[in-house]
Simulated scan of single mutants.
Amino acid sequence: MRILSISTGKISPLFGIDHPDHKVVNSGIKKDVVSSLEQPNIVLVRKVGIDGDEQADFSVHGGLEKAIYAYPAEHYNFWNELLAREVKRTEPIGHGFVGENLSVEGFTEADVWVGDIWQIGEVELEVVKLREPCFKFNARMGYKGSAKAMIQSRRSGWYLKVHQGGTIKAGDGIIVTPGRRETNIDMQNAFLLRKEQQKDLF
């Protein structure tokens, strides 16, 4: 289990949003890889997240409880197949595109439990909760069904809080210390899916 890449982004305008009240909105979802296996640059982690990363709306991403967003790199095959089919996208998307800071290998939502501690060198992180997609995710993906697809497929990724800052880089291994192991991210996804299905009934 390791980090394949680290991505950060600045707040910038996001266009083409399928939302009745917004044509343009600021977002930090557009991220670029700053550390990769090919170029494993060292990145500083602070209590509020990765150095150089910005968030426009702390209610959905950022702050101490959602400082870092991790996403399984294995999910990118799903998104590339979906976008090729639904919007005829020909250029595949890559790490960081869905807005994650850490593209990780060796985890699925069923393997990741709320309260687990991740040790990456001197950096200590704690798993907090799943990512709930919104209309900004649809705009970023260029497909209005993206948020629904994330919920239905239960490929959400998860947020981490920072207990101990320090430096990390792509290629670093992740050592997991189990927490109470009462709820995993897949369970949270299943609950969110049921809630969204109930909304659709009204």
Rank of each mutant, 00 (worst) to 15 (best):
G16T: 06
M141T: 05
S5V: 05
G179C: 11
G62D: 08
N26V: 05
V123F: 02
K30G: 09
L125T: 01
Q197R: 15
R89Q: 15
N184A: 07
Q152F: 12
I42M: 10
P178E: 11
A139R: 03
A139P: 06
A73V: 10
G62W: 06
A67E: 09
T8K: 06
I17S: 06
F191Y: 10
H22I: 12
G94M: 13
H163G: 01
L83Y: 08
L82E: 11
D186H: 13
P178I: 11
G173F: 08
V162K: 01
A147W: 02
A110G: 12
Q152V: 05
F78N: 09
L160T: 01
R194Y: 06
D18A: 12
E124Q: 14
A190I: 11
N26R: 13
E105K: 11
K47T: 11
T90F: 08
Y69H: 14
P178Q: 11
F97A: 13
E132W: 00
R194P: 02
P40G: 04
D32K: 15
N41Q: 09
L83W: 08
A147K: 03
V98Q: 08
I151C: 03
F15W: 07
P72L: 05
R155M: 11
G115A: 07
I185G: 00
V33P: 03
N184L: 05
E126T: 00
F97Q: 06
P92F: 10
T177R: 13
D172T: 00
I42S: 14
D18R: 05
E74F: 07
Y143D: 06
R181H: 14
F97W: 12
I29T: 08
E81M: 12
V24S: 09
E105G: 04
G99Y: 03
H95F: 15
K88I: 04
K129C: 12
L192W: 07
F191V: 15
E126W: 00
Q164F: 00
N101H: 02
L201R: 14
L160M: 14
Q188I: 01
E81K: 15
K144P: 13
F135D: 10
L201N: 07
K195T: 10
D116T: 06
E100F: 03
G63E: 05
R131N: 12
S156E: 01
K66G: 03
Y143I: 03
V48S: 12
H19D: 14
R194E: 15
V87L: 10
L82D: 04
E86D: 12
F135N: 08
E182S: 10
A110L: 06
E105D: 13
H75Q: 10
Q55V: 14
V127H: 02
F97Y: 15
E105T: 03
Q39V: 09
I168Q: 00
G121V: 02
S7V: 01
L125P: 01
V176G: 05
G9S: 04
H95P: 15
M187S: 12
G96M: 09
L102M: 06
E74Y: 08
D57M: 05
H75S: 07
L192H: 04
V98D: 02
I11A: 07
W79S: 10
Y143R: 03
Q188S: 02
E126N: 00
D53T: 07
A84I: 02
